[in-house]
Design a protein around this nucleic acid. Structure first.
Lengths: 213, 213
DNA sequence: AAATCAATTACACATTTGGGTAATAGATGT
DNA sequence: ACATCTATTACCCAAATGTGTAATTGATTT
C-alpha cells in the first residue's frame, strides 16, 4: 500500500503540480491537498496520512503552527517543510515545532521525491543550504565569544559560575581568595555589560562563551 | 585536476581500503594518509588538501582536536568525520570544532563517495542517524521542560530572572510584592533541584524551559 | 626603561538573595 | 463538601553578592 500523503500549499498551481509529481511515484498516493492548514490535525487523522508536505507562508495559522498541531496529536506522521524561506528563524522554528525535514522550493522534483523516500526510512532530508545553517548554529560561538575579550582566568571563573558554583566554591577550586573571585567577576560583568551573575550566566550560555553540555 | 584528499585513520586495513575506494573516482586523488593526526595542520598545508577524511578515535590528539587544528590554519579545507561513534558528545563536539560532515562507518562505499562529492558543492553530508540527533537537539525542549512541572506563573518569573531582572524588578513587572517573588523562586529552585538563581538560569537555558533570546 | 596588563589580595559597606515558617483566598478536582 | 493546588503576603535572619577604592607582583609590550 502506498504512503498516504497530504499537501498543504496555498499556491494552487504549485499544489496541483506537486500532486501530479508525487502521484507519479508508485509508492506515493496524495490522499488530499489543501490551501491552508487550519484543520491540519483533523485532516491528518481523517486521511490517516503518513507524510505531510507543508508550506509555511499560508493564509490562516501558517505552516509552523500547523506542524505543531499535527505533531501534538499525531507525532508519528512525517512532516516535511517545503518553502522558499531560508531565514534562520523559520528554519529553527520549524525544527523546534517538530518538522522531519526542510526542503527549499528551488529543490528539483527528483530531489523532492528522494526527500520523501528518505523521510520514510528514518532520515531527515534537508536542502544543503539548510544543513549549512544548522551546522553554523552550533559554531558561530567563538567568533562572537572572542569579542568579549575575556582572559583565560576570567573564562575559567565564568565557567565555574555557570556550573552553579558560589563565589566561595570558585575560590576553593581556583585556589584563590573570595575577594579575588569577586574582583574577577566584577571585571567579567563589565566586559559582558551586565550587572549580576544571573545575567552573566544567561549571556555566557546564549553567546556560547562557555561550553554547554 | 582532481580534489586532493588526506585520510586520517589508525586502522591500517580500513585506511588502505579507503584509499583504494577514493582513488577509483576520477575526480578524487588521495594525496596521503596517516594513522594519527598529530601534525594534521601541517600535512594539510604540505599537500594542499581539499578534503580531509577524519577518524575520531586515534592515538595521539584525536580527530576532534584534529579538526580544530586544521580549521584554525586552513578554514577552507572540507573535513568529513568518519567514525563508528554516534553519541551526542562526539557528534556535537565535531560540529562545533568545524567539521563539514559526519558520516558513520556503517555508510556504504557509494554513500561515502556521494558525501565527498556533496561537501565540495557546499553541502553538509551526514548519516541519517546523525541528522536525527541534530534535529532532536533543537526539540527535546518541551518533553523535558514539562517534567519540571512549573506553573504558568513560575515560568513567567523564571523567564524574567533569566532576562536579568532582580527580585525587585520582577516584583514590579508582575505587580506583586518581592516576598511573593521570593516564594515563587524558592518553589522554582526546588522543582529544578538547584540552590540559587545562577544555577536556575543555567538549567532553564540548557533545558530550554524558557525561550532563548 | 617605562608603560600596560593580568592576577592577586584586602577592606568596607549596602543590597540582594535564599531559607524557614505561617497564613489567607480562590480555583480546581473528587 | 473536602482536599489539593496556586498565588499571594508577611516577617526574621543568615549568607551571598556587588561596588568602590587601593595596592602589589610578574609578564608583556613599546
Amino acid at each position: 500500500m502506498p504512503y498516504q500523503i497530504l499537501i498543504f500549499e496555498d499556491n494552487s498551481r504549485l499544489r496541483q503540480s506537486l500532486e501530479m509529481l508525487l502521484n507519479d511515484e508508485a509508492n506515493f498516493y496524495v490522499a488530499a491537498s489543501f490551501p491552508d492548514c487550519d484543520n491540519a490535525d483533523k485532516q491528518v487523522e481523517k486521511y490517516n496520512a503518513d507524510i505531510v508536505v507543508m508550506d509555511i507562508d499560508m493564509p490562516g495559522i501558517g505552516g509552523i503552527a500547523g506542524v505543531k498541531k499535527i505533531k501534538n496529536t499525531n507525532p508519528d506522521v512525517k512532516v516535511i517543510m517545503h518553502t522558499m524561506f531560508d531565514d534562520d528563524n523559520r528554519i529553527f522554528d520549524s525544527i523546534c515545532s517538530g518538522a522531519d525535514g526542510y526542503m527549499l522550493k528551488n529543490t528539483s522534483p527528483l530531489q523532492l521525491i528522494n526527500a520523501l523516500q528518505e523521510v520514510m526510512t528514518g532520515g531527515v532530508p534537508m536542502s544543503p543550504f539548510v544543513a549549512q545553517k544548522v551546522f553554523q548554529h552550533f559554531r558561530q560561538s567563538k567568533i562572537e565569544a572572542e569579542q568579549f575579550d575575556l582572559t583565560a582566568r576570567e573564562k575559567e571563573i565564568l565557567e565555574l559560575l555557570v556550573k552553579g558554583n558560589s563565589y566561595k566554591m570558585i575560590a576553593n577550586k581556583c585556589g584563590i581568595t573570595i575577594d579575588t573571585v569577586k574582583k574577577h567577576l566584577q571585571n567579567i560583568y563589565h566586559k559582558l555589560h551586565v550587572n549580576c551573575g544571573t545575567e552573566a550566566v544567561a549571556k555566557a550560555l546564549r553567546h556560547k562563551i562557555v561550553n554547554p553540555e
